[in-house]
Amino acid sequence: MRLLTARLLDSREILPGQWLMRWEAPWLASTALPGQFVHVRMPEWAGMLLRRPYRLNTFDRIAGELTLHVRVAGRGSAWLTQLRPGESVEMLGPLGRGFEVDPRSRHLLLIAGGAGISGVRALADTAVAEGRQVTILFGAARASEVYPASLLPDEVEYLVATQDGSLGHHGDVTELVGTYEAWADQAFAAGPPGLLAALARIAAGRDARLGVARLGRKRGANPDPLGSPGARRKSWLQVALQQTMGCAVGACLGCVVTGVQGPQRVCREGPVFAAAEIDWEAAG
């Protein structure tokens, strides 16, 4: 975790109100892990007091660059997306705990809703580089909001669902999960809370059917505690959550979500959690 300056290299609107911004930030790019985020400082003169958290969409360790996928959702993102190449921002990062991929997992299922794809996008790159097979299921309201396939690595399989049926499967992206449930060794999701809650229900059902029998009895009475890297690696579904933040370093307790074992800081225990760590009733 460091405070540093990142310089904007280029920025373009890839979807209506959604921008892909490429930054020069060598130290961040070389230390970041998929699932982590940065806390971007806002301009003081505009009266914006809080930094804004953005997930590391992709990073290129060799070029020393990273990208953020920014959806204009308020004053902060509106300001950020208006920046011109050559301008700089102050970033704090990399922050939080990333995805836990089991070294033995061959097949990874990534599930994303809308701009939430920024939450799992970097994992597609690293997983492909490690020789794993990756399928991305993507859901959006309509065709015009579908993430361009050209921005994904060639090696991934990409399936789309739209609510209005204008592209791909007509309906919810969760309806595509069934086909891949048995194939996927692990699943990773990011997107609106409703989508994540639905996926958590699917994952719980899957665990109930086959998981329980598999849960390493060999380890006896001492399994990995909930929230540990080991437990996350063993859980089928990990989710990348978002929450409004203050400090992003674990100091203010502003970013919590309700977990089954009490409040969990999205900036510190997260932003990635095993689905079973979250109290989805309270979260909805």
Partner: peptide
């Protein structure tokens, strides 16, 4: 308290 807990 219940989240969300901070906002600008």
């Amino acid at each position: 308290n219940a989240p969300p807990r901070v906002t600008e």
